[in-house]
Amino acid sequence: MADGAPLTDLIQEGRASPAVPARVGHHDVLIESGFVGVFVYQIRGDRILVVHANKGYRDDIAAALLDAVDDLADADDLGSIVRLRPIEVPGFALDRAALLGPGQTDFFKNRSLADRGLQVIPVHRSEAVDGEEYEAFWPGVIGKNLAIRHYDWTREPSPRADVRRLDDGVGGLYRRNRHSRRSSKPALVGARMVLQHDLPALADGVRLSVMDVRGHDLRLHREWDRLRGTLQIPGKAEAVDVDIPRLSAWAVFGPLFGGADFEPAALEEQRPAEHMLMMRVGDSERRRHDRDDHPTSLDECLRWLDALAATDGNYLVFAGRSEGIVQMRWQGPGEPRLWLETPEPAHHRSRGRYVTRDEAATMIQTLAHDDRVAVDDLGDLETGTWDPGTG
């Protein structure tokens, strides 16, 4: 199409279905319906505003989106930032309209309307920040991080968290290289993932800042089966002390990251004590060879014992709260046997014997429940001495 072609013709470029005149709320629009969904186009002078849904399209939602950004869409200074406006539609889980200005939407990319096309998409207040740069919003929220399907109007909110590593470690979760400023840039991740999975599994010494879209800054580290640190609430001078079971972070802070007010009472809820160990795995079949210990529930430790293939060299190492160690390794060709021992560095030796899986399970359970290395309960132990220069 020539640059001077009518906008109604430019809209049709490369489209599989025609866009026909219609009315949505009090807006005159063009609607294109096809196998990839419904597209609502609103001509605004020399600009085109598009709304897209491929699942759950409703006229009342489309109208609410257009209403919300009506005072913004003609502004000359939209720039490269995302503008949020509230919406409220009965039965619809998302409560914000996010406006992307000309040149800031992939929908019109490489088309004649690239510099005149705008897009409004529904999001939740926990997913986006008003005024953030498009280059952060689109790759992070719509792209690979949260991977929100913005065209699915039946989806539930996906709260986000901006995560930074605070310690000087150079490896592990959300790594931070002390020699690089760029590496301390926050990582945008799903709040449920970091609260429910990542925080409980923090390695010793790792400290994270986990921030919601409103600026609530949760700074935590793991101490055995607890998460400890602070919550800084925007506008409050004093931070709130946090000391919770490691597996309860999502239950305690999930509502906050979902957009609710902070409830101090959530910190007081009592939960049963957890039986856990630090575990290290060497499993050639699964190509897992840990360099560090990982906090692991007792149930998962026992599942690893059951699952570890009886292959020469495969091993498991378990450490208790008081740093007592029980370790085991499959040994021998043919039908390997499971050797279990406890190292005693102060005496430059280890003591153990070949065991059954049931005997190994008992040793793991005792270490987790009682914080006690119970190899003496096995009897008939063998002692292996170390060279003091290597022990």
Rank of each mutant, 00 (worst) to 15 (best):
W339P: 03
L231C: 06
M363L: 15
S126L: 04
T385K: 02
P18W: 11
F137Q: 01
T342V: 00
S322D: 15
S180N: 11
Q104W: 07
A75L: 08
A309K: 14
S322V: 02
R175G: 03
C301T: 03
D67N: 15
P255W: 14
L84S: 04
G34S: 12
F108G: 04
E263C: 06
L146N: 05
S126G: 04
D283I: 05
R291H: 15
W250Q: 09
A73E: 15
S284F: 12
L202N: 02
A307N: 14
G172C: 07
Y57P: 01
T311G: 04
M363T: 02
Q365H: 08
H294E: 15
A62W: 05
D306R: 11
A68P: 06
H179C: 05
E268A: 10
R182I: 10
M363Q: 15
R83T: 10
Y315D: 08
A249I: 00
V170Q: 07
D60I: 01
K236C: 10
H347D: 12
I148A: 02
D283S: 12
A374E: 03
W138N: 00
W339I: 00
T356G: 07
A239C: 03
L49Y: 06
L202K: 00
S158D: 15
L173G: 04
R214W: 09
M276T: 02
L7Q: 01
V240G: 02
Q331M: 09
L100M: 13
E238P: 10
V82E: 12
A68G: 11
R85D: 10
V189Y: 08
A319D: 15
N177H: 13
V163S: 08
P18C: 09
A63H: 12
R155I: 10
D46K: 03
V141C: 04
A5P: 02
W386D: 11
Y41E: 09
I11R: 06
V326G: 03
F92H: 04
D70S: 15
R226L: 09
L267K: 04
T8M: 04
L173E: 11
R85K: 14
H369Q: 09
P86M: 11
N110F: 14
L84A: 14
F137I: 00
R357C: 03
R357G: 05
D377C: 01
R246H: 15
R83C: 08
T230V: 09
A360P: 00
V317H: 12
L118V: 02
A73F: 06
L218P: 07
R228I: 13
G324I: 00
P6E: 12
W339N: 07
N110I: 02
R23A: 09
R44W: 09
S297D: 14
L338Q: 00
A260T: 09
D358L: 11
T230R: 06
E133L: 10
D225E: 08
T383F: 01
H197C: 10
V326W: 02
P139N: 02
A75G: 00
N145F: 11
R165L: 03
P255C: 09
S184I: 10
